[in-house]
Simulated scan of single mutants.
Amino acid sequence: MFNRQSNAYVTWTLLVVTIGLYLVEVLSGGSQNASTLMTLGAMTNSSIQTGDWWRLITPIFLHLSIFHIFMNGFTLLYVGQRLEPMVGHWRFFTIYMLSGITGNLASFAFGNENAISVGASTAIFGMFAAFLSLALIYRENRFMTEVGKSFLGLIVINLLLDLFMPSINIWGHVGGAVGGFFLGYALSLPGIKRPKMIIRILALVVIVAISYYMYARGMVVYG
């Protein structure tokens, strides 16, 4: 039931692309060089307001330091090799990317106007929350319940740590978690008719509504 596709090749592809882009950063002027980061696709609130919508996507693959990419890369590999076989390749890719985008939208709507946003942590929080939603859907499964508790703990602990680290964009993490949670309900597991279709549709509606609100708020605040 929970191991339909054993090869996590989407996870590995995402990791390779992320590492490759970090090397490009280093060779192009440095991973902490603001000009280099913006050229490669980093996000600022003003850049989205002026029409660079694609910067809601590209920051997912950019990182500031060896430690930054190591932590996110390790987490991507660890969680991805467990989540991707469960939900399938395209579902996993969708959860990862859309969670990253909802996280960046939350940063756009509520974050620091002048901050440069990069990092896969928005998408990683989405993976954590997707596990949580699956645990709620399949709560009779002991494995899923235990895994869900573990990832709920990771979400809470990391958000608490964010409160004491002003350099961390907590809104991006919250937005990524919200996106991943509802995507878990919308996509669920392949070949299993749970949750009901109406719940899946409602979850999609909620994601679209929240995303639109955050985009509209960001455009008003920084317009």
Results as ranks from 00 to 15, higher is better:
residue 1 M to N: 14
residue 3 N to D: 14
residue 6 S to G: 13
residue 9 Y to I: 10
residue 9 Y to W: 12
residue 9 Y to G: 12
residue 11 T to W: 00
residue 12 W to I: 11
residue 13 T to S: 09
residue 13 T to N: 05
residue 14 L to S: 01
residue 15 L to V: 10
residue 17 V to K: 11
residue 18 T to C: 03
residue 18 T to N: 04
residue 19 I to D: 13
residue 20 G to Q: 00
residue 21 L to E: 09
residue 21 L to N: 07
residue 24 V to G: 05
residue 24 V to K: 12
residue 25 E to Y: 08
residue 26 V to I: 07
residue 26 V to G: 10
residue 30 G to V: 08
residue 30 G to Q: 09
residue 30 G to I: 06
residue 32 Q to P: 13
residue 33 N to A: 02
residue 33 N to T: 07
residue 36 T to D: 00
residue 39 T to Q: 12
residue 42 A to K: 00
residue 43 M to A: 08
residue 45 N to F: 07
residue 46 S to T: 11
residue 47 S to V: 10
residue 48 I to Y: 04
residue 48 I to L: 11
residue 49 Q to E: 14
residue 49 Q to M: 12
residue 51 G to H: 03
residue 51 G to R: 04
residue 52 D to E: 15
residue 54 W to Y: 13
residue 54 W to R: 10
residue 55 R to K: 08
residue 55 R to N: 09
residue 56 L to Q: 03
residue 56 L to E: 06
residue 57 I to G: 06
residue 59 P to M: 03
residue 59 P to W: 07
residue 63 H to P: 10
residue 64 L to Q: 13
residue 64 L to S: 12
residue 65 S to H: 02
residue 68 H to A: 02
residue 68 H to Y: 01
residue 71 M to Y: 15
residue 73 G to A: 06
residue 73 G to T: 12
residue 77 L to F: 15
residue 79 V to W: 15
residue 80 G to V: 05
residue 81 Q to G: 06
residue 84 E to K: 05
residue 85 P to W: 14
residue 88 G to R: 11
residue 88 G to Q: 10
residue 96 Y to P: 03
residue 97 M to F: 11
residue 98 L to H: 04
residue 100 G to K: 01
residue 100 G to N: 02
residue 101 I to W: 04
residue 103 G to T: 05
residue 104 N to C: 10
residue 104 N to I: 01
residue 106 A to V: 00
residue 109 A to W: 02
residue 110 F to N: 07
residue 112 N to L: 14
residue 113 E to N: 12
residue 119 G to C: 00
residue 119 G to S: 06
residue 119 G to N: 09
residue 119 G to T: 07
residue 121 S to G: 00
residue 126 G to M: 00
residue 127 M to I: 11
residue 129 A to T: 00
residue 130 A to G: 00
residue 131 F to W: 10
residue 133 S to W: 03
residue 134 L to K: 09
residue 135 A to E: 03
residue 137 I to Q: 12
residue 137 I to C: 08
residue 139 R to T: 04
residue 139 R to Y: 02
residue 143 F to A: 15
residue 143 F to G: 15
residue 144 M to I: 01
residue 149 K to A: 13
residue 150 S to R: 08
residue 155 I to V: 14
residue 156 V to K: 02
residue 157 I to N: 05
residue 157 I to W: 04
residue 158 N to S: 09
residue 160 L to T: 01
residue 160 L to I: 04
residue 160 L to V: 05
residue 164 F to G: 15
residue 169 N to H: 03
residue 170 I to N: 05
residue 171 W to H: 09
residue 172 G to I: 01
residue 172 G to N: 05
residue 174 V to K: 03
residue 174 V to N: 06
residue 174 V to F: 08
residue 176 G to V: 01
residue 177 A to V: 04
residue 178 V to F: 05
residue 181 F to H: 03
residue 186 A to W: 01
residue 186 A to N: 09
residue 186 A to F: 00
residue 187 L to R: 11
residue 192 I to L: 08
residue 194 R to C: 01
residue 194 R to E: 00
residue 194 R to P: 04
residue 197 M to F: 15
residue 200 R to I: 03
residue 201 I to F: 13
residue 201 I to A: 08
residue 204 L to A: 13
residue 204 L to W: 15
residue 205 V to T: 13
residue 209 A to N: 02
residue 213 Y to W: 07
residue 214 M to Q: 06
residue 216 A to N: 09
residue 217 R to M: 14
residue 217 R to L: 14
residue 218 G to S: 02
residue 218 G to D: 01
residue 223 G to N: 08
